[in-house]
């Protein structure tokens, strides 16, 4: 199965650095990034050929960022994007988790679906764009579809891998003690694979967030992708860079939230034996 689905969920939990040290290193990393950005901006400003792009530098960008934050425009931009990603992920999880459980449990189903699923997975979600546009009446529908197509595979494969790692004796014990299929699913299987499912969702979120922006370049008149396109058309490079920063910040926050959830649901404890 795919290598990312087989990554042990434990390793994806937050690194166990000391809290302060972690914060300090994070701040230092951001400072280095800002420094490089500033250096780049300085080089561009001093290059006669690139002079027009000087607004990409930190100072104009941060001031544009402050503007869109203060005016609340940032919510108007990111709201539709978050809705599209949320809806796409929800649909992907609603399909991916049950199908993942089924192919993890049923051998012939896994054998049957393996080749077609791996084939579909390797198709860039964006290549469905023309089809999505034809099938869906609204641009929103098409974008949600594209995100769903991108997000379903990590969720499905991670869920299936989690189900296959379930200790068979957990199922035997439950059967022996009188569990019905509902018990089996909600008391044994779902808690056992919670971390795998969340890990899949975290990977899916990363892919969805990447697919979102190019998908929003087309048709729609809202969202972060549209805001970037719009800023480019009006040559407002400071604003464009500010939107890029917003995209990065929201993506980081969402990923961090997923990691925190994974940590919360991870039942593996450090043990002496």
């Amino acid at each position: 199965m795919s290598s990312m689905a087989d990554t042990p969920s434990v390793k994806l939990a937050l690194p166990s650095m000391g809290r302060l040290r972690g914060l300090g290193m994070g701040a230092l990393g951001i400072a280095v990034l800002l420094g490089l950005w500033w250096l780049g901006g300085w080089a561009v400003a001093n290059d006669p050929d690139m002079f027009a792009f000087a607004d990409f530098a930190p100072a104009p960008t941060l001031s544009a960022l402050w503007d869109i934050l203060r005016s609340g425009e940032v919510f108007a931009m990111s709201g539709p994007s978050l809705y599209r990603v949320g809806a796409g992920l929800l649909i992907a999880a609603a399909l991916g988790v049950p199908v993942g459980i089924a192919i993890g449990r049923i051998d012939w189903l896994r054998e049957l679906t393996n080749v077609p699923f791996q084939f579909l997975r390797m198709i860039s979600p964006l290549s469905w764009m023309p089809i999505a546009v034809m099938v869906y009446e609204t641009w929103d529908g098409a974008i949600v579809f594209l995100i769903g197509v991108a997000a379903i595979w990590p969720i499905l494969f991670s869920t299936a891998a989690g189900v296959r790692r379930i200790d068979p004796s957990w199922l035997k014990v439950a059967r022996n003690l009188g569990a019905n299929p509902i018990h089996m699913l909600f008391v044994v299987i779902l808690p056992a694979i919670a971390v795998d499912v969340l890990t899949g969702i975290r990977l899916a979120l990363g892919v969805a967030w990447v697919v979102l922006v190019p998908a929003e370049y087309l048709g729609v008149t809202s969202g972060l992708g549209y805001a970037i396109n719009d800023a480019r058309d009006t040559l407002d490079y400071a604003r464009l860079a500010a939107v890029v920063v917003v995209i990065g910040a929201i993506g980081f926050a969402l990923d961090y939230a997923c990691a925190a959830l994974i940590k919360r649901f991870n039942w593996v404890r450090d043990s002496a034996h």
Binding site: D167, S169, K172, V173, V188, P191, A192, A194, W267, R269
Partner: peptide, 13 residues
């Protein structure tokens, strides 16, 4: 009639 295995097979969560 309950079976017990070599491993305790407790639910770790």
């Amino acid at each position: 009639w309950v079976m017990m295995f070599q491993a305790p097979s407790l639910y770790p969560w």
